[in-house]
Amino acid sequence: WKITIYDQENFQGKRMEFTSSCPNVSERSFDNVRSLKVESGAWIGYEHTSFCGQQFILERGEYPRWDAWSGSNAYHIERLMSFRPICSA
């Protein structure tokens, strides 16, 4: 599993790669995730830290803005603060 997060939209700004769970992006000096690329595996992104709040399934691909992973939710969530890989047995 591999995911790359960015602190600006369209894959700009600070970037960081992960191959395992991140319970709080702010502990990695990110205020928020504004864009991301899922390089391999599937991940679950969460609205809040500690894997809480609205969940987003993140499959392999590029997500240049928050609405790319938020989709058409009843209330739009511009925040992604934690994530972890989906492990299959």
Rank of each mutant, 00 (worst) to 15 (best):
P64T: 06
D31I: 09
R34Q: 07
R65N: 14
G61S: 03
Q8V: 03
E39G: 08
F30Y: 06
N73P: 11
H48G: 13
S70E: 14
D31K: 08
C22R: 01
Q12L: 09
S21F: 05
E78H: 15
L36R: 00
W43C: 03
T4N: 07
I77E: 10
Y75K: 15
L36T: 06
N10Y: 14
G61Y: 02
M81E: 06
S29Q: 09
L80V: 06
V25D: 06
I57W: 08
R28M: 10
A89V: 09
G61K: 04
Y63E: 00
A89D: 09
Y75T: 11
V38P: 00
W43V: 02
S40V: 08
A42K: 15
Y46L: 02
H48I: 00
H48Y: 08
R65Q: 10
A68N: 15
S82K: 02
P64N: 11
F51K: 00
D31A: 08
N10L: 08
D7Y: 02
W66Y: 12
W1E: 11
N73F: 06
I77N: 15
E47A: 10
A68R: 08
R84F: 04
M16E: 12
I5L: 09
E17G: 09
F51A: 01
I77C: 13
K37H: 05
N73W: 05
S29F: 09
T19V: 06
Q55V: 04
R60A: 11
A42M: 12
S40H: 11
V33M: 05
V25I: 12
I77W: 07
E17M: 09
W69H: 06
V38Q: 02
W43H: 01
I57C: 09
V33Q: 01
A74D: 14
E62S: 13
V33N: 00
K2V: 05
Y63K: 00
N73H: 12
S72A: 13
F56A: 12
W69N: 07
S20V: 09
S88E: 12
F83A: 03
S88K: 10
R34P: 00
G13N: 01
Y6W: 09
W69M: 11
Q12W: 04
C87I: 11
R34A: 08
D31N: 12
D7V: 01
R79Q: 09
K14G: 05
I5N: 01
G45F: 15
K2Y: 00
G13L: 00
H48V: 03
E9H: 05
V33I: 11
R15C: 14
E27C: 08
S70K: 14
Y6P: 00
I86H: 15
F83E: 01
F11V: 00
E39R: 09
I86D: 13
Q8Y: 04
G45K: 03
R65L: 05
E39Q: 11
Y63C: 05
W69G: 07
W1A: 10
S72F: 09
R60D: 08
V38C: 01
R28T: 11
Q12I: 06
T49F: 05
G41Y: 01
K37P: 01
D67C: 11
L80T: 02
K37S: 08
E17L: 07
S20A: 12
